[in-house]
Simulated assay, not measured.
Amino acid sequence: MNSKAIREVKSGNHDSAKDLFYEALDLEPNNPTILSNIGLYYQDLGLDQKAIEFHNKSLKASDSTYLISGANLGNAYYQIGEYSKGIRILDFVIENTSEDKLLVAAYVNRGFNHLGKGNCKKAKSDLMTAKNKSSNQKDMDFQVSRLEKKLKNCLQQGL
């Protein structure tokens, strides 16, 4: 059901996706993947507070080891302007994983949070690390590029 819900989201069938996610959650109420995907679903709809609720539930259900939720939570905190919280959770993710794809996501999201705080230097450091780790992660190029563009604006404003 979770996989079908993801396909429904990708097809733009949000109502159907929501129903499927919640059916999957009824069957497995403590499944961190389902909880995280519901969080992403709400982020996609711009309901960031609801997304944060589900990313937090995912972390708790996984005993804080499902670090994908942490990377997503850091992004959700960026979206609502709670940059310090985003940085804290992303620091945790970075310190506790060695998976390159997850590290790229965490560094990019932490970079966005640093930009939110107006810290171009730290954002640039995160961008450089993300770029180094993303050489084999072509699906992350878009996110790295987004951070690079925002960083350029930050640096120009600081001149």
Score class of each variant (00 low, 15 high):
3 S>N: 06
5 A>P: 06
7 R>I: 15
8 E>L: 13
9 V>S: 02
11 S>C: 00
14 H>F: 09
15 D>F: 07
17 A>H: 08
19 D>F: 11
20 L>K: 00
23 E>D: 15
23 E>P: 05
24 A>S: 10
31 N>T: 02
33 T>S: 15
36 S>E: 14
38 I>G: 08
40 L>H: 09
41 Y>T: 10
42 Y>G: 06
42 Y>E: 10
43 Q>H: 08
43 Q>R: 14
44 D>N: 12
46 G>K: 05
49 Q>G: 12
49 Q>S: 13
51 A>Y: 01
55 H>A: 04
56 N>C: 06
58 S>A: 14
60 K>H: 13
61 A>K: 06
63 D>Y: 10
65 T>V: 11
68 I>F: 00
70 G>C: 13
75 N>S: 13
78 Y>F: 11
81 G>F: 09
91 D>C: 03
92 F>S: 12
93 V>P: 02
95 E>A: 15
96 N>G: 07
97 T>D: 00
107 Y>W: 04
108 V>S: 08
109 N>F: 07
112 F>W: 07
112 F>T: 00
116 G>E: 08
117 K>W: 02
121 K>E: 14
123 A>Q: 03
126 D>M: 02
127 L>V: 03
128 M>H: 14
131 K>W: 00
133 K>T: 03
137 Q>N: 14
138 K>E: 11
145 S>A: 14
145 S>N: 13
149 K>C: 09
157 Q>V: 10
158 G>P: 04
